[in-house]
Amino acid sequence: MYQKCKTAGIIPLLAALSLLSGCATPTVQYGDPLSQQALSTDFGSADLQQIAATMVDSLLAFPPVAEITATRRPVISVDRIKNKSMQHIDMEAVTDSIRAKLIKSGKFTFVDRSTEAAVLEELKYQQNSGMVDPEKAVEMGKQHGAEYILSGNFAEIEQRGDDVRDVYYKFTLNLKNLRTGLLEWSDEKEIRKVWKRSTFGM
């Protein structure tokens, strides 16, 4: 009898332990991409949105840029932002966000170098394949050249203490005038995240 009771006591314990070791069903919920709650010190979607918005606002509000874009929409090329951080971040997504925000502002016109190879192939086909009516084919050498190039980089400095991890992200963007070589605008946005170890946990 004594043995039986002992065994019966073990079963709930085992069940509790298996729950503790992570068999519980995880939950996933939709969240607001702009929500400010940081889950880790990693660079997340909210940071990305925040950076893109702040940088574009800063660029458009800069008086000389406002002047350039007041009467016409200059042609701009957005270069891929360089990742100098310690995280594998899809910099193309960051670049896309910035470009999309700039496009929505309606202040610039854009050239997209990333589709160059496909464009060249299409133009060659139109010109050389004999399949396209020469009057309706797009002529080579008529594209717009970019007047400005927007480039930037993303750096990270991490400091680790015993129970603290302090991560500092710095995002820099530059607008360069291709004709004059002058740097028309530059700004940086900083994000600092501090992680503290909790005392109790599973």
Binding site: S21, T199, F200, G201
Partner: peptide, 11 residues
């Protein structure tokens, strides 16, 4: 990153 005192750690 684990907490200083954990149930699984104690076990």
């Amino acid at each position: 990153d684990k907490a200083k005192i954990t149930a699984s750690g104690a076990l």
